[in-house]
Design a protein around this nucleic acid. Structure first.
Length: 424
RNA sequence: GGAGAGAUGUCCGAGUGGUCGAAGGAGCCGGACUCGAAAUCCGGUGUAGUGCUUUGCAUUACCGAGGGUUCGAAUCCCUCUCUCUCCGCCA
């Protein structure tokens, strides 16, 4: 969340930012509740001070009349305090819930706009793949090659679940190792993380586990959820801690399963592996000093490029428009790989996403470092996809297909696969 | 899953209702001593809020988390989380 003290000092900036992001946040209501909360907080503290003073007076020996008078006074204070505290707690919860809905500030260079199409393509790599034959999509390719099985996935687990089979399994493992090797080479510590996290961690990262529109599976009666990304488990790793400054930056990379409800996510653009309830992903995560987060955001993006360039996949980089940024993100870059089977004649489809969340998550999760002045300060936190296995497989199958329906393995993956072609 | 033990400041550790924001020790910072260092001695040293006459003063909260009892809770009661030991089960 943002620093609520800045509601007073940066009011108009916050108001404008909410507008730019096209969010439904009633800032005036929040400001009014903040004033109410403030007044009740002071009243509560005054009463507590009186209570403490009253208790202090009773430490020594007293005659019974004096003691009784003090006890009566204490009781009266207690009754009043109980009442005021209840009022304060109510407005405090309301205010904090409201304040949490305020989005992070936005990088001044992020394009302003409401939708996908307002995002800015800032770089292209390669040319969209051309075929001398009619290109198939990955669903058809995968089923004909017997490496993807959606029908039995649906039968056993439900719609949008799938089995990966045969050389498809090896291809996914090869991709994992390929990406892992590149990321580790750049100094990231590898992790395999839990696939489950507590709701408080989800909330701190900026995911809402509740509500009809939530993308998160909650596990009934446990206070935990299935993670939608290792961003959650990597970002929760240092929650509540003060990190020594000389340990920063901390670079982590985590492999996890990702579970997403994707309610209402059906349709042509979501078919096959593109949008599924479960997939595996290798995620990068960085904790760093505030002044360095822009730099590390670029570093994550360049590692993502290295991974996709190494695979020989054409892609473009998109600077996400304000209206499409998640609340925690200060700025976000997506890599969209060319997917020949998408739409009628192929389209770019998102394969990675990297966000600089500045101190927004760190404040909610209370993750700080000790600065040179001895004071703890919030770290900046960044995340980025190294490789989302399901979507990378979409791009590989569709770009590396041959006329006979076989798939050529990208050269960089051959050493990891042990074969160079998938055939019927 | 069952039984038991535990969780206190940067760390170790004392504390079973008021004199406890918390003994003692270690560490760290400053000073004395020293040619310098070590040892020794002296002083300081948590976090997050709030208010104000804002490089300070006052005040509130924080002893795993949340609730309760009480005029008053680190201390008593309840729930939960985590750690350790033993048993069970298991990859």
């Amino acid at each position: 969340m943002i620093d609520v003290r800045e509601l007073k000092t940066r009011t108009e900036e916050i108001r404008k930012n909410i507008e730019n992001r096209f969010m439904n946040v009633d800032l005036d209501q929040i400001l009014a509740d903040q004033d109410k909360r403030s007044a009740l907080m002071q009243e509560t503290e005054t009463l507590r001070a009186k209570r403490n003073e009253n208790a202090q007076k009773m430490k020594g020996k007293l005659d019974s009349d004096a003691r009784k008078a003090l006890i009566d006074e204490g009781k009266a204070i207690k009754d009043k305090l109980t009442e005021v505290e209840a009022e304060f707690n109510e407005i405090d919860k309301k205010f904090m819930d409201e304040a949490r809905t305020i989005p992070n500030y936005t990088h001044p260079d992020a394009p302003i706009g409401k939708e996908d199409k307002d995002s800015l393509a800032i770089k292209f790599f390669g040319e969209p793949t051309k075929f001398s034959f009619k290109a198939k999509d990955h669903v058809q390719l995968g089923e004909e090659l017997d490496i993807l099985d959606f029908d039995n996935g649906a039968k056993v687990a439900g719609q949008k679940f799938y089995y990966i089979k045969n050389k498809g399994v090896i291809l996914q493992m090869a991709l994992e190792r390929y990406a892992m090797d590149i990321v580790v080479k750049h100094g990231f510590t590898p992790f395999i993380t839990p696939d489950i996290a507590k709701e408080e961690i989800l909330n701190g990262i900026g995911f809402n586990p509740r509500g009809a529109e939530s993308n998160i599976y909650t596990i009934e009666g446990t206070g935990t959820c299935l993670v939608g990304t290792a961003e959650i488990t990597l970002g929760g790793y240092y929650s509540g801690e003060i990190i020594p400054k000389d340990k920063l930056p901390i670079k982590m990379t985590g492999l996890s399963h990702c579970f997403r409800r994707e309610a209402g996510g059906a349709g042509q653009y979501s078919k096959g592996l593109y949008r599924v309830h479960q997939f595996s992903k290798l995620e990068m995560f960085i904790y760093c000093l505030p002044e360095e987060s822009d730099k590390y955001h670029q570093e994550i993006l360049s590692i993502e490029e290295e991974i996709f360039q190494g695979l020989g996949l054409p892609y473009r980089i998109v600077d996400t428009a304000t209206g499409d940024l998640g609340a925690p993100a200060y700025r976000k870059f997506d890599i969209e790989a060319w997917m020949p089977g998408r739409g009628d004649e192929g389209e770019y489809g998102e394969v990675t996403s990297t966000s600089n969340c500045t101190d927004y998550q760190a404040r909610s999760l209370n993750i700080r470092y000790r600065d040179d002045d001895g004071k703890p300060k919030f770290v900046h936190m960044l995340n980025g996809t190294a490789v989302a296995l399901s979507r990378a497989i979409v791009a590989i199958l569709e770009n590396y297909q041959n006329e006979d329906g076989s798939i050529t393995i990208p050269p960089a993956l051959v050493p990891y696969c042990g074969f160079d072609r998938i055939t019927k």
